[in-house]
């Protein structure tokens, strides 16, 4: 051992300890930044640098929100909006995934339908919202269908890309072990496409939410979207802010849900970079 190192204490690093330390400090930093933003928002509206008529303020938002919960229908609205978003998201993503997977079974079928899928993707679905509301009514169904339409093609395209990335040698290997097409499908095609569908979960959850909100804007008796529209019409800007904050919170919760789902689906494999 060289002379220099002899008297010094040996340093052995534990990468997992370092990681935990980093994670804790990052978390503390994240909280701190949030607190600073809320603080300045509150502070600047109080001293009048920001006009509290337009910007409201965190304390007013909390107060208005509390009133909306206790005396209004905020919680029912939240349940309504999150219900149609999540339902539309699940139906759209699962349906799109199955649609994309189905293209694996026949080259002829996939060739025929591929241009139609792309064309359907190009239609701005939100522009159809008024028609859909007339077709399916102003209730829950039209919102679910909007969220569904927003998400299905994105999922189908992702799954189809995954299908096209299936390693033909893996197929060959399985066939040499006596596999039929359904075995290849279940054991190779489905697992190969999972990272592809996982990668669009986060995009789809926000698309579904956009679909629902627009549906509620067009015409609805319930929901956060309707509440925001109504509050805007009566110039109750504090209540608009309550709606925006609640939607952000809903979006964050659903995002965390997809992160969890991702972890479950990708268990035991390194994520595709």
């Amino acid at each position: 051992m060289p002379e220099k190192l002899k008297n010094k204490e040996m340093i052995i690093e534990d990468p997992s300890v370092e990681q935990t330390k980093l994670r804790r400090r990052a978390f503390a930093g994240q909280i701190l930044v949030g607190v600073i933003i809320v603080f300045f928002w509150e502070f600047l509206t109080r001293i009048g640098w920001l006009d509290s008529y337009y910007w409201s303020s965190p304390s007013t938002i909390v107060r208005t929100g509390w009133t909306a919960i206790t005396q209004g229908t905020l919680l029912q609205d939240l349940a309504y909006t999150s219900g149609s978003t999540i339902l539309g998201f699940i139906l759209g993503t699962a349906g799109g995934y199955l649609l994309g997977l189905s293209f694996w079974w026949s080259a002829l079928y996939s060739r025929i339908f591929e241009p139609y899928m792309i064309a359907f993707n190009a239609i701005p679905k939100l522009a159809l919202a008024p028609v859909l509301v007339i077709m399916f009514g102003i209730g829950f169904d039209s919102k679910v269908i909007l969220a569904f339409l927003m998400t299905i093609i994105v999922a189908a395209i992702a799954a189809y890309s995954g299908v096209q990335n299936v390693d033909p040698d893996l197929e060959k290997m399985l066939v040499s072990l006596g596999a039929k097409r359904r075995h290849v499908f279940m054991k190779v095609v489905v697992p190969t496409t999972i990272p592809w569908i996982v990668s669009i979960l986060k995009i789809n959850i926000s698309l579904a939410l956009a679909g629902t909100i627009v549906g509620e804007f067009i015409s609805s008796r319930q929901g956060i979207g309707r509440m925001i529209l109504y509050a805007g019409q009566v110039l109750n800007i504090d209540l608009v802010w309550v709606g925006v904050v609640v939607l952000s919170l809903l979006s964050i919760v659903m995002y965390l849900g997809t992160v969890w789902l991702e972890r479950v689906l990708m268990k035991g494999r390194t994520p595709k970079s």
Binding site: D167, D169, L170, K172, M173, S176, K187, V188, G268, R269
Partner: peptide
């Protein structure tokens, strides 16, 4: 017959 290629073709998942 059993068949094996140069690539190991193990399923990563």
């Amino acid at each position: 017959v059993g068949y094996m290629l140069q690539k190991d073709l193990l399923l990563p998942w």
